[in-house]
Structure formats: structure tokens, C-alpha cells
């Protein structure tokens, strides 16, 4: 279809304007506010304050560590489901059912899923009741209100992202490559190790980046899983904005978080870059 320049302009002017007005501009304003003191002078003092404070540093560190662990758990879990659904399952119905089971959690709110874990892991929850019924423990184990609970909760929430990303990569593998590997003497395990796995890595990489980035800024699940006994960066940012109304400080915290996350992702991509040179060739 031939669209004239005028047509194109009409089509994109409002969407672009919206994005600028409600995304770019607010972010710009927020970011800018973090670089100015109350008196209106340009200064980085807010950032120094954050970096100098032991509490903020340790929260930032904890947030990053949690996110790395969550990514490390979600990846193989998601890989298993993706591999199984794309390469092993033959029945179309089963494949659709599995996709539905994976996508259904995505359509429920974070809070609902976190609540589900409260029910599962709480003092009176299924896990504890089963353990006590089995006689494995005598008093309920405290699963909730810890970093571990956050990791469990977040990895559950992000597995679907991994599954979709990896499934997409696996789907794109030319089936004749598997036959070629077999033809050349590669048994099932070798074919997996030397053909399927390497070719799925772009999907693993993309999925990991998505999961890590979402993890780092997750708010609902950590709030609920920690139950007040600890904080992650997103909770501190929320506090600054909503409780203290200290917008510039909140903005500075947000930028610090995004920047460190960006550095981690960039490093990770760089390391992977060499292994994935072939996909860029």
C-alpha cells in the first residue's frame, strides 16, 4: 500500500505525541530533578548521598543478587518446559494446553500470584501442613518473609517469559539440522548438546535479560514475600515517592537502579556476544 508522507504523518503524530508527553517527558523531568538541589543548582549530591549510605548500597546489592539468582533459576526451568513443548510434545492439543498453562499466570495479577505463594508457604499453608502431616517437621517452617521467599516467588512469576523466549528460538531451528547431526553420527544427546543448545542460546539470552530487568524493578512480590522484614530498591523508591513525597530523591534512586541494571546487562551481553557471533554474521 502506498502511503503518502501526509498519511504517515497523520498516522503517527498522535501516538508519538502521547509517548513524548506521557513517557519521555515525565522520565526526563524526573531524571532532571535528580540532578538539582532544592535551591536549583546542578549537583550530584543526591547520588553521592545514595552511594555513601550503607543501607542503600546493601539494598541495591541485595536487589541485584536476588535478580541474578531468579534469572539463574528461571532459565533452566523455562528451558525445560520450552524444550519439552517444542521438541518433544507431538500432540497439538497437549502443546496448546501447555502454552495455556504457561500463559495463564501471565494474565493474573502479580499480587494474586504472590498471594498464592502466601497460601502455599505460610505457617498454615499447604507445604507446612504436608510436612507436618508427613512428620518431617514438628513446627511450621518459616518460608515466607525472607529473601528466599522473594526468589521463589519471582522465579515462578518470570518462568513464562523464559519459556516464550526460548520456545521462539527453538521453534526457529531448522529440523534438517537435527537430521544432519544424526546423519553424521551424532546420537540424541550429542545432537542436543552441539546443535539444539547452541542454537537456542539467543532465546536464553533474550529471556535472561527480560527476566533480570523485570526482577530488578519488581515491587509487588518482594513487598508481599518480605512482609516488612526487608526491602528491595523498588520499595524504597515507592516509599520516597508516595510516603515522603521526595520526588528528586526517588528519581535519583530509580536512576541508580536502572543504571546498575544496565551495566550488569551490558556485561552479560558482551560475554555472550562472542558465543553468538554466528547469529550476527
Amino acid at each position: 500500500m502506498n502511503l503518502s508522507r501526509f498519511n504517515i504523518f497523520c498516522l503517527i503524530v498522535i501516538p508519538v505525541a502521547c509517548l513524548f508527553a506521557f513517557c519521555v517527558a515525565p522520565l526526563g523531568v524526573a531524571a532532571a530533578s535528580s540532578f538539582f538541589t532544592d535551591q536549583g543548582d546542578f549537583s550530584l549530591q543526591t547520588y553521592w548521598k545514595i552511594l555513601a549510605d550503607e543501607e542503600y548500597r546493601s539494598t541495591l546489592w541485595a536487589t541485584l543478587v536476588i535478580s541474578v539468582v531468579v534469572t539463574a533459576i528461571a532459565a533452566p526451568f523455562g528451558f525445560l518446559i520450552a524444550y519439552y513443548n517444542v521438541m518433544v510434545v507431538k500432540s497439538k492439543l497437549a502443546r496448546r494446553l501447555i502454552y495455556m498453562a504457561v500463559i495463564l499466570p501471565l494474565f493474573t495479577s502479580n499480587i494474586v500470584r504472590a498471594f498464592g505463594f502466601m497460601v502455599l508457604l505460610g505457617r498454615n499453608g499447604i507445604v507446612n501442613n504436608t510436612l507436618m502431616w508427613l512428620g518431617a517437621v514438628e513446627t511450621p517452617v518459616r518460608f515466607l518473609y525472607s529473601d528466599v521467599a522473594v526468589v521463589i516467588g519471582l522465579s515462578y512469576i518470570f518462568v513464562p517469559f523464559m519459556v516464550l523466549s526460548i520456545a521462539s528460538a527453538l521453534q526457529g531451528i531448522d529440523r534438517s539440522l537435527l537430521q544432519a547431526s544424526s546423519d553424521l553420527g551424532g546420537g540424541p544427546w550429542t545432537t542436543f548438546r552441539r546443535v539444539v543448545l547452541p542454537l537456542s542460546l539467543p532465546g536464553v539470552l533474550a529471556g535472561s535479560i527480560i527476566v533480570f530487568t523485570l526482577s530488578v524493578s519488581a515491587f509487588v512480590t518482594p513487598s508481599v514475600m518480605l512482609g516488612g522484614r526487608g526491602k528491595v530498591m523498588s520499595m524504597i523508591i515507592y516509599e520516597q515517592y508516595v510516603s515522603f513525597m521526595n520526588f528528586p530523591f526517588g528519581a535519583a534512586l530509580a536512576i541508580t537502579l536502572m543504571f546498575t541494571a544496565f551495566v550488569v546487562v551490558a556485561l552479560y551481553s558482551y560475554v555472550f556476544e562472542r558465543k553468538l557471533a554466528w547469529s550476527r554474521a
Binding site: V29, F219, S234, I237, Y241, F247, A251
Partner: peptide, 22 residues
């Protein structure tokens, strides 16, 4: 540009909007 909200944390967008809107 249009896809950028996907890579930005929701809380950051929400917070910035609050700041901007006020």
C-alpha cells in the same frame, strides 16, 4: 520509541508520571 515502555520498569514510569502530573 514505541516499544520503549517495555524495557522500562513499571514503577519508574509510574513514579515519573506522578511527578510530572503533579
Amino acid at each position: 520509541l514505541m516499544m520503549s515502555p517495555l524495557v522500562l520498569p513499571n514503577i519508574v514510569i509510574g513514579a515519573a508520571l506522578l511527578q510530572f502530573a503533579s
